[in-house]
Design a protein around this nucleic acid. Structure first.
Length: 354
DNA sequence: GACTCGTGGTA
DNA sequence: TTACCAAGAGT
C-alpha cells in the first residue's frame, strides 16, 4: 500500500524536480530507452550532448536497427561501457524483427531485450507507458539505504533485495511517471553522496539515518581491492602517405568492437618491436621511436600505455581487411575510438618524443 | 556470487 | 596525485 512517502516526494518534485531534460520532450519508448541505457553508470550532464547527437542521427528504432554498428559505436565514442552500444543496436533489431518496431509495454518482455535489465525495463514501463513499475538505480539505492538505514554494500544480493522490497513498497499507483523521475531527482539533487541537503529534504522527518545522524554510514561502501598494473605497446604505424594503421578490437573485452591502434605483447623489448612487427603484421618497419607513455585508470586496473612510432617502409600488404585499415588521421578520428586513443591521435604533444 | 566493462567529476 | 563512484547489465 502506498504511503505518504510518495505524496511528499511528488510535492517536492513539482516545485524542485527536473522537468526539462531532453528525453522528457517528444517522450516515447524509444527515446526513454536510449536515455536509460546512456544514463547507466553515467551522469546526466555527460549524457545530454550524446543523446542529442544520437537522436539526430537515429531518430527512431528503425533508423537504429538499419544502421551499421560502426556508426552506432562512433556516436558512443567517449561515453564508455561500449557493450551498451552493441547491445542497443542488437536490441533495436530485436524490436523491429520480433515486435514490428513497437516496444512491448510489458516489463518481462522488455527484460528479454539485450541490455535491458530489471531497473531499465521498469523505467521504460513507468516513463513511456505510465504503468506502475519499480526502478532501483544508484540514486534510489542511496535514498532508500538512508531512509531505512539499510546496512551493507548494495552490491551484496541480500542488501540489494532489501532495497528492492523498500522500493516496491513506496511505489504509488498514481503519477508513476513523475514519481519515477522524482525519486531519481531527489537522489541526484538533495540526497547526494557527499554533502546531502538533509535540511531541505522532503523526506527528512521519516529518514532513519538522518534521525540517528548517521547519513555518512549509508549506503555501505564497496570492499576495496588492489588494482593490478598492466602494460601494453600501442603502435603508431605510419606509411609514406601519412596513413596510420588502425585495428578493430575483439567484440568482447576492454573497448570491445572499437577501433584502436595495433598492440604488441608487452613482453617484447623495445629492440624487438621491429622484428615482432614484421613477424606478426607482415610489415617492414624502420626502427622504433619511443614516445613517453601514460597511465590510464580503469575501474579494475591501471593500464600503462606505451606508444611507439614505427614508420613503415614502402608498400604493405596489410590493410583494408575487416580488422585492419590504413586511414588518414581524420578518417581514423571519425571512427568510434576509445578516449585515450583519441587523445593520442589528436594531441600528440601529450605523448612527446623521449 | 564474483568479475568485467569507461569516462569524467569530485574530494 | 589518487581513490572513489555515478540513471546497471552481461558473463
Amino acid at each position: 500500500m502506498p504511503d505518504r512517502f510518495a505524496d511528499k516526494l511528488l510535492r517536492w518534485y513539482d516545485q524542485h524536480g527536473r522537468h526539462d531534460l531532453p528525453w522528457h520532450h517528444n517522450r516515447n519508448a524509444y527515446r526513454v530507452w536510449v536515455s536509460e541505457i546512456m544514463l547507466q553508470q553515467t551522469q546526466v550532464t555527460t549524457v545530454i550532448p550524446y543523446f542529442e547527437a544520437f537522436m539526430a542521427r537515429f531518430p527512431d528504432v528503425h533508423a537504429l536497427a538499419s544502421a551499421p554498428v560502426d556508426d552506432v559505436l562512433g556516436h558512443w565514442s567517449g561515453l564508455g561501457y561500449y557493450a551498451r552500444a552493441r547491445n542497443l543496436h542488437k536490441a533495436a533489431k530485436q524490436v523491429v524483427d520480433e515486435f514490428g518496431g513497437e516496444f512491448p509495454a510489458d516489463q518481462k518482455q522488455l527484460e528479454n531485450l539485450t541490455g535491458i535489465g530489471r531497473s531499465t525495463a521498469a523505467a521504460i514501463v513507468a516513463q513511456a507507458f505510465e504503468k506502475r513499475a519499480t526502478i532501483l538505480d544508484g540514486n534510489v539505492k542511496r535514498v532508500l539505504a538512508r531512509y531505512h538505514a539499510v546496512p551493507g554494500w548494495p552490491g551484496q544480493a541480500a542488501v540489494l533485495n532489501q532495497l528492492w522490497e523498500h522500493a516496491e513498497s513506496h511505489t504509488p499507483e498514481a503519477r508513476i511517471k513523475d514519481y519515477t523521475q522524482a525519486i531519481m531527482d531527489l537522489g541526484a539533487m538533495v540526497c547526494t553522496r557527499s554533502k546531502p541537503g538533509c535540511e531541505a529534504c522532503p523526506l527528512n522527518d521519516g529518514c532513519l539515518a538522518y534521525a540517528r545522524d548517521e547519513i555518512r554510514l549509508y549506503p555501505g561502501s564497496k570492499p576495496k581491492r588492489e588494482k593490478p598494473e598492466k602494460t601494453t605497446w600501442m603502435l603508431i604505424l605510419e606509411d609514406a602517405e601519412g596513413r596510420i594503421l588502425m585495428e578493430r578490437r575483439p567484440p568482447s573485452g576492454i573497448w570491445g568492437g572499437l577501433w584502436s591502434l595495433p598492440e604488441l605483447d608487452p613482453a617484447y623489448g623495445s629492440d624487438e618491436l621491429q622484428d615482432a612487427c614484421a613477424r606478426e603484421l607482415g610489415l617492414n618497419c624502420h626502427s622504433p621511436e619511443p614516445i613517453s607513455g601514460f597511465r590510464h585508470t580503469f575501474s579494475h586496473y591501471h593500464l600503462h600505455i606505451q606508444p611507439v612510432r614505427l614508420p613503415v617502409a614502402g608498400n604493405t600488404q596489410v590493410g583494408d581487411s575487416d580488422r585492419l585499415r590504413w586511414l588518414h588521421r581524420e578518417e581514423a578520428l571519425s571512427l568510434g575510438l576509445p578516449a585515450p586513443i583519441r587523445t593520442l591521435l589528436t594531441e600528440p604533444e601529450q605523448a612527446t618524443l623521449l
